[in-house]
Design a binder for these strands. Structure first.
Length: 320
DNA sequence: GCCAGTCAAGTCCCG
DNA sequence: CGGGACTTGACTGGC
């Protein structure tokens, strides 16, 4: 038996005026003459983003969704060079605590996917330092919400830099200088241009990092199309995690724009996948990456039910 | 009110 | 080798 739980990313198409990613660009920031007022504005935006996150969590509970990825744009300009003196966490304490209190009452898997500027295998020291800083910010946000930080940040391996083997060795080398508490947060995903399932698995096994299998990326970028041959190894990377295995699902927008995400999830592709892994794990969490966000989740849920899966609630299914 | 162009960050790809 | 594409949602500025 396998329990399948569906999750979605960052925002809801059903909640109005509820963006968790409002922002201010640096150009806009620097055009405000009173710097203190400009910083207050940044703080107001960040607090509003967190309040909208809480609304989203309530929406999830109301719709029995147990899995959610926070936006990584919660704090505009958080690590900008010119705002090094800004202690941005202090004014956010209260808003973060409220989220933490709510999560305590309504347990839900929440995590982050820092964007593609966070590169652990970069040969550039400044880029590496910025990446560590950004990871530390994610850690502070999780801690502010009293969420156990272990395995909550999905990252890609990084750039190939014209030599994939070398780039993987550089990942291992740089990994050694990442603070242990940040290492603990990281999980790694196969990507759609450079690092395949096998490449990522090599690093995950070597360094003890759980692997997030992205099925769509795999179809766009593989060495061996028989991913099932590696599935047991993928499952094993989660053996010592407090969390169930997770994966990403999305569907190609079109043949021409194969790598771009479609509005919705193609249920045939997903059902095919589920059929293969049925019974191999007690529980799996599937993060839906689709333009239509939570609506894609609802529609996929209906498709799964129509296909005969036993529905536990809006976001959960049981496969015998 | 709508549409096009712009935005912190890095890497890849094409000409 | 250099500049544009990539990707994403939000926001600005021009009409």
């Amino acid at each position: 038996m396998t329990i399948v739980r569906l999750g979605y990313v960052a925002m809801s198409v059903h909640l109005k005026n509820c963006s968790p990613s409002q922002t201010m660009t640096y150009r806009q920031f620097s055009s405000i003459k009173d710097r203190e007022a400009a910083i207050l504005k940044l703080e107001r935006i960040a607090i509003s983003n967190l309040q909208n996150c809480l609304r989203l969590l309530k929406h999830n509970v109301a719709n029995s969704i147990h899995f959610f990825r926070f936006s990584s744009k919660l704090i505009p300009l958080a690590n900008h060079e010119e705002l090094r003196d800004w202690r941005y966490m202090r004014p956010l304490k209260e808003a973060l605590r409220e989220i933490g209190d709510y999560l305590k009452e309504h347990p839900m898997r929440v995590d982050f996917h820092p964007d593609h500027f966070v590169l652990l295998n970069t040969p550039n020291v400044d880029t590496l330092n910025m990446s560590v800083k950004t990871l530390a910010m994610h850690e502070a946000l999780l801690k502010g919400m009293s969420v156990n930080t272990e395995h909550r940040c999905v990252l890609h391996v990084g750039g190939a830099y014209e030599d994939k083997e070398k780039a993987m060795e550089l990942f291992i080398e740089n990994w050694g200088v990442i603070p242990h508490k940040l290492q603990k947060m990281v999980i790694l995903e196969n990507d759609d241009t450079s690092f395949t399932l096998e490449d990522t698995l090599y690093l995950c096994e070597k360094l003890g990092i759980p692997l997030v299998f992205d099925y769509h990326h795999h179809l766009a970028n593989f060495q061996n199309d028989r991913w099932l041959e590696s599935w047991e190894r993928v499952v094993n990377t989660w053996a010592h995690s407090p969390l169930p295995i997770k994966m990403h699902i999305s569907s190609p927008r079109s043949d021409k724009e194969y790598r771009a995400h479609a509005d919705l999830i193609d249920p045939i592709m997903f059902l095919g996948f589920l059929n293969e892994i049925k019974g191999t794990v007690p529980e799996i969490h599937c993060m839906i990456e689709a333009k239509q966000k939570d609506e894609a989740l609802f529609q996929l849920g209906d498709d799964l039910e129509a296909a005969g899966l036993e529905r536990i609630d809006q976001g959960s299914f049981r496969m015998k």
